[in-house]
Design a protein around this nucleic acid. Structure first.
Lengths: 145, 145
DNA sequence: CAGGACTAATTTGACTATCAAATTAATCTT
DNA sequence: AAGATTAATTTGATAGTCAAATTAGTCCTG
């Protein structure tokens, strides 16, 4: 089996399962009520400061209407706080609650474990090659779409 | 910035955007009515022969109920054909129509271009390293979930 | 400074994807 | 032939998504 087939196979598998995999990782902890989508929103809001709906929606690549629904549920579950801006009362600022910040950090550990599992047993030179390949993949996506 | 952080960043980006990216690739062609999910079903049915619902559902990791809905829509759009098995009349065999096979091949080209973009400019030694890293990634997913 | 244009967010209506559980229909077993 | 099993579909519920309509607030211009 050549490298192209290998790569294709692994990438196809990732394409198909990446959400399922991440969902399982997210739900396997103490944060059973957090969906993969919820976690993406939590990651986008980020640890520090409060962001308005439009900018978070844009960085997630969804409409603000969609984000409103997601945030409704995250507020109800207690991960996110909603505050109307004082400067411009049209604007809604969203930020992570204490529980939200904890969930965020919990998920970061999943990412760290994943990276650890991959780079462990790879030499420095090999790590550099992997990085190079991933950057190429990223460029491919940016150039094509 | 160290290698772990870079790897994490690229992987997180992939995790977040991989479906959006593939969806755009699928819809950007002449097959505007094919969703990413539709394409996964088409890939699972495969070019040759007819497969029954249960086995396709299993290889997709969804329930047969879910697959029934997906196949309803694919049949309506003309990508998939449904035939009751003669040997066992409980069984439904699904296969790609001519249009379905064309869509499948069209999507394969996207995969090939992607692989090409990654492998190009990597030496043989580097390709071997990349393969090793991807096997690790795959193992991580299998062992953890 | 009032009316109109614009902007931010939410709501609404529609659709896709998903599951578990109930149902239907066919086959196998004893 | 009855009961158990199996394959697929249907049903009822939920999440995520968009486009378009709506609501509410701000800005601009005559």
């Amino acid at each position: 089996m050549n490298i192209n087939h290998m790569l294709n196979e692994v990438l196809v598998k990732l394409f198909r399962n990446i959400n399922i995999i991440e969902e399982r990782a997210i739900c396997s902890g103490e944060y059973k009520d957090v969906t993969a989508n919820d976690m993406h929103v939590i990651e986008a809001i980020d640890m520090e400061g409060a962001r308005n709906m439009t900018s978070v929606a844009r960085s997630l690549g969804v409409t603000t209407g969609t984000l409103t629904i997601s945030v409704n549920s995250l507020v109800k579950k207690g991960y996110v706080e909603r505050v109307r801006s004082e400067e411009d009362r049209r604007v809604v600022l969203i930020s992570l609650s204490e529980k939200g910040r904890k969930a965020y950090l919990h998920h970061q550990r999943f990412h760290e474990q994943m990276i650890e599992a991959i780079v462990t047993e790879l030499s420095m030179e090999e790590q550099v090659v992997l990085e190079k390949a991933l950057v190429k993949l990223d460029q491919f996506f940016h150039s094509s779409f």
